[in-house]
């Protein structure tokens, strides 16, 4: 029944905990918006079953990099990406790669909760349905339930699955969006400031959730909040003016960064 469960066990077997295995790798990634260069030769590795936080002041290119990882930048007209990004060793910008499959494998949660104006059930069921992941209605029900459970929303919405997703509170909406992303059994989940529109309590719930999701998924999260990066991530990458300043274990970055700029940013001297 459950493709998610399969992926999970597989992922755990593949990953020996001692040495890091890289899920996604960016090599010399540069991004231009028209004539303006937004990202300069970024080299960044995303480790399997790890939460990687991208931090940095506004306009530093962290969201741009994130959106390169599932080619969401393709939807922007004058955006040009160069360099190489691989998912399990395969170049995702290769002509042979199907962008629909890529986005199913690399899901995304956006800054503003954006549920479809449909029922809660339909929101979660949509992905599995278009990808043909469920063989029967019962199958689909099961996927919806597991996804909502993984997103920690099941107990709150199980009695009103047919009510519109837009009627939920902001925090619930964001968890619904996470459930929607989880429902297609992605390998990587990208999160673009998922808590910036939420109140502290909802933020805490989502952060807790990110912790739990780590065992099943590889997560890359963009955040403006230092505390959040410190709380949820194991690896942190610091961006500034389109450059990757440094990338290291989160503990190291927040206690003893190699770069002065990182230190300054974390201490709140600029940003």
């Amino acid at each position: 029944m459950n493709m998610m469960a399969e992926t999970t066990t597989e992922a755990k077997q593949v990953q020996p905990m001692s040495e890091p295995s890289f899920k996604m790798l960016g090599r010399n990634v540069s991004v231009h918006y028209g004539a303006k260069q937004a990202l300069f030769n970024v080299n960044l590795a995303v480790r399997q079953n790890t939460v990687t936080a991208l931090i940095g002041p506004s306009g530093c290119g962290k969201s741009t990099f994130l959106r390169c990882l599932n080619r969401m930048n393709d939807t922007i007209d004058n955006c040009r990406v160069s360099g190489e990004i691989t998912l399990d060793g395969q170049d995702i910008y290769d002509a042979a790669i199907d962008v629909v499959e890529l986005r199913a494998r690399v899901g995304m949660v956006f800054q503003k909760p954006n549920p479809f104006p449909k029922s809660i059930y339909e929101n979660v069921a949509y992905g599995p349905r278009i990808h043909g992941l469920a063989r029967s209605r019962a199958d689909l029900d099961q996927i919806v339930e597991t996804s909502l459970q993984k997103a920690g929303l099941w107990s709150e919405v199980k009695d009103r699955l047919n009510e519109p997703g837009t009627g939920l509170s902001g925090g619930q909406q964001q968890r619904l969006c996470i459930a929607r992303a989880v429902a297609v059994s992605p390998e990587v989940i990208l999160m673009d400031e998922p808590c910036s529109a939420l109140d502290p309590i909802a933020t805490a719930r989502v952060e807790e959730l990110i912790h739990e999701l780590r065992s099943n998924f590889t997560i890359v999260i963009v955040t403006h909040s230092m505390q959040q990066a410190a709380r949820v991530s194991q690896r942190t990458a610091m961006f500034h003016l389109g450059n990757l300043v440094e990338e290291n274990d989160t503990d190291k970055i927040f206690t003893n960064p190699d770069e002065q700029r990182t230190q300054d940013y974390i201490m709140g001297r600029f940003g």
């Binding site: 199913a104 995304m108 956006f110 969006c177 992303a181």
Partner: peptide, 13 residues
């Protein structure tokens, strides 16, 4: 555009 991105983001064509 958030609706468009939501759909594309889970692999809709």
């Amino acid at each position: 555009s958030s609706i468009r991105e939501a759909a594309l983001g889970i692999g809709a064509s």
